[in-house]
Simulated scan of single mutants.
Amino acid sequence: MKSGAIRRLATGLAVTVAAGMLGVAVPGQAHAAATSCEGRKVRSFPFSTGTVEVYKRRGYVCAITLPKRPGVRQYMKVYLRAYGLLPVEDADKYKYRAGPVTVHAGQRKVWVKGQVGRGTYDSDGWIRL
């Protein structure tokens, strides 16, 4: 085998091993990115134990609640309601996030709530995004 072929083989093997290690090193983050909201982040509402992030895409609004301490199984909740429509909510014990929940808001205002443990966020009214 010529030295150029050996070098290409070694480089290809190194890239394959590095990619495999990256997938093993951060499986939670890779999974979180795959199932979070689509669109652009329009608002972020921090509170004592976490953050509610709100995204918007083509008239749809999506929200997730993220804890300040991910990896610890705890009660989390995300609530989203477009004006005049029924609310959508996800609440349970999670390690990494509650949600995503999505509503078709169009140009309507929305009401957003989030909770991680005892800490809560409530928009306390309708907000325009």
Rank of each mutant, 00 (worst) to 15 (best):
Q29H: 13
A98S: 03
R43W: 07
A82C: 03
L85I: 03
V24L: 15
V61F: 00
V78K: 11
E38F: 07
R81W: 00
K77H: 01
K93W: 11
K77N: 03
A32W: 04
G50K: 12
Y83E: 15
P46C: 04
G50V: 13
A33D: 03
H31V: 13
K56M: 08
Q74M: 00
R73N: 15
Y121F: 14
V88G: 03
W111I: 13
T49S: 12
L13Q: 07
V52P: 03
V54P: 01
V15Y: 08
G106D: 03
A14N: 06
V54T: 00
T11V: 05
G99K: 02
Y96F: 05
V101A: 02
R57F: 09
C62P: 11
K41C: 06
Y60H: 13
L86G: 11
A34N: 02
T51S: 08
Y96E: 08
R81F: 00
Y83G: 06
W126K: 03
M21V: 07
Q29R: 10
Y94A: 10
I127R: 02
Y55S: 00
R118D: 05
K56G: 07
E89Q: 09
L66F: 04
T120Y: 02
A32D: 12
Y94H: 11
H31M: 14
Y60S: 14
G125A: 07
V88T: 06
P87T: 07
A63Q: 00
P87E: 05
M76E: 15
A18Q: 04
A10V: 13
G99I: 00
S48K: 13
L80D: 04
G119Y: 05
P70F: 05
R58Y: 10
L129I: 08
G12F: 01
P70H: 12
G12D: 02
L22E: 14
T120E: 13
F47R: 07
G114F: 02
D124I: 02
A25S: 09
T11P: 00
Y96C: 01
T49C: 02
R8P: 07
K41F: 04
G71R: 15
R58W: 09
K2I: 09
P70Q: 14
V112L: 03
